[in-house]
């Protein structure tokens, strides 16, 4: 029994893109103060985190394996990063200043890069734009890891902009998926939502 549903990766790409477009340029020191994470971490937590997680879990029913792995992994990353910023905001932990070295976050970005490159290769089977967005994301994570492990603010700046570019590409892929209707969706147009496409 096959059950159709709306593509969860639209939400996933929008949530990923939104988080990256905010965090990437801030990480690149293009806007705001070093302590501005206290203001934007709730957005990372709820949209980049829970929004993407919802998309990832619905991707199982959508039979979208790359989407489930990509959005599930980055959802967890942003949930954790937001918790770090929350704990730093309430002075439970101390985090390095923006632009300085940060070993543990650099370590996480190594493995996020490996995972993103793996999901990018999987996405290539169905979607070249999806591959480009995810490969760019992997490149940004790699540069971020190098910048944080080496303590190089210059590499971190480049990494932030590459992550921002990945966010823009993710937006574009999500936007394309939203307007590209399936060729021949099975529906009963007089029925309730779920029986027909849309509400």
């Amino acid at each position: 029994m096959l059950q159709p549903l709306a593509a969860p990766s639209i939400l996933g790409y929008f949530a990923l893109g939104s988080a990256l477009i905010i965090w990437g340029p801030w990480f690149a020191m293009a806007w705001g103060k070093k302590s501005d994470y206290s203001a934007f971490f709730p957005f990372l937590l709820l949209f980049g985190g829970f929004g993407q997680l919802a998309a990832a879990l619905w991707s199982y029913r959508a039979r979208a394996a790359a989407s489930a792995a990509l959005h599930g992994s980055w959802a967890a990353f942003f949930l954790g990063l937001a918790l770090i910023y929350l704990l730093a905001t309430v002075h439970t932990i101390t985090i390095p200043l923006r632009g300085d070295g940060w070993q543990s976050l650099g370590q996480w970005l190594i493995y996020m890069a490996v995972i993103s490159m793996t999901t990018a290769f999987a996405a290539l089977a169905h979607s070249v734009p999806g591959f480009v967005a995810q490969a760019t994301l992997a490149a940004g994570a790699t540069l971020g890891a190098i910048g944080l492990l080496a303590g190089s603010s210059g590499v971190q700046q480049v990494a932030g902009w590459v992550l921002c570019a990945a966010g823009a590409l993710a937006y574009a892929v999500g936007a394309y998926q939203m307007v590209s209707a399936p060729r021949d969706a099975v529906e009963y147009e007089h029925g309730d939502p779920g029986v027909k496409v849309g509400q």
Partner: peptide
């Protein structure tokens, strides 16, 4: 079809 009826990206 829509995702769910086929493999999706």
């Amino acid at each position: 079809g829509q995702p769910g009826t086929r493999h999706a990206p």
